[in-house]
Amino acid sequence: MELFGVPIVTVYLYGLIISGILTFIYVLFADVLHVDTGDGGLHFLNPVLVFAFMTILSASGYLFERLSSLHSLLILAISAVIAFILVTLLNVFVLVPMSSAEESLAYQESDLRGRIGTVITPIPADGFGEVLIESASGRIAKPASSFDGGEIANGTRVLVVQVKDGVLQVTVHQENESFI
């Protein structure tokens, strides 16, 4: 079969090359070209999904044309179904979870309240020291001052009472003793 005087195999091959190049360019410049549609947009018209659909359609159409003797319209229909299924799976299992995932391991200073840390630089009565807070995602070292106004020695376990202007206000942590 021919389309505009060009064999359909060539059309599929050109479609594969062009959609592959456009996908690659979009991946490189997605942040610059991204338009946020908000909650009411047409999410199935996401350029990643459109380019993936065209790439899969062209690739499967090319392979079916080269390797089978089916009619070209049947090959187009089969390729469209394959592309639709794979793009749906891509959207459901990759793109949607990635869009709802956390963007970074950033934290808010208000999240540090109530956390227990270790003094790594002694805190004088009227000055600043440094406290190390460990978590599953890493370690955070922040400047600290004494909430009670007393000195706190190096290596002491402390409780973060509040955070003011990026400085932790801490007090000595009293570990609970177990009762027998």
Rank of each mutant, 00 (worst) to 15 (best):
G40N: 13
G129F: 06
L22I: 04
A136W: 05
V96R: 15
F84G: 07
S58D: 07
S99A: 14
P47R: 10
F53E: 13
A136E: 15
A153H: 11
L132G: 06
F29D: 08
A136V: 12
V94C: 10
L159W: 00
V50G: 11
I123Q: 02
I17D: 07
I21M: 08
V9D: 03
A30V: 15
E151D: 11
F64V: 01
V94Y: 05
L45N: 03
V35D: 06
D165W: 01
F93H: 04
P47Q: 04
E151Q: 14
F51G: 03
V87C: 11
I123V: 12
E109T: 11
L16I: 12
T118D: 13
L76P: 01
E130C: 00
Q169A: 04
S135I: 10
F84V: 02
H34Q: 10
G166T: 15
I140C: 09
V119E: 07
K164C: 03
D126N: 00
F51I: 03
V167Y: 09
E151G: 11
L16F: 15
T118P: 09
F128A: 02
L168G: 02
G117W: 02
L16E: 06
T37R: 12
T37H: 10
F51V: 06
H34D: 11
S104C: 11
N46G: 02
L45A: 08
A77D: 05
I56P: 01
Q162P: 02
L112C: 06
I8K: 07
L76I: 10
T118L: 15
A59R: 01
S104T: 14
S145H: 15
S146P: 12
L42P: 15
H43N: 13
T118I: 15
E134K: 15
Y12S: 01
G15I: 09
H71E: 05
L89E: 10
F147N: 04
A52R: 01
P143N: 11
I140E: 02
G38K: 08
S68K: 08
L105D: 13
F147E: 09
S100M: 12
K164S: 09
S100T: 12
F29K: 12
V81F: 09
V27C: 12
E151R: 12
H43F: 14
V167T: 14
S79I: 03
I21T: 02
T55A: 13
I8Q: 12
A52F: 02
A77G: 07
I17A: 12
S58G: 07
L57R: 01
S79M: 02
L70W: 14
V119A: 10
N91G: 02
D148C: 06
F179I: 15
L3S: 10
Q174V: 10
D126F: 00
E177P: 01
I116M: 05
V50C: 08
H43L: 13
I17T: 15
V6I: 15
N154G: 03
T121E: 13
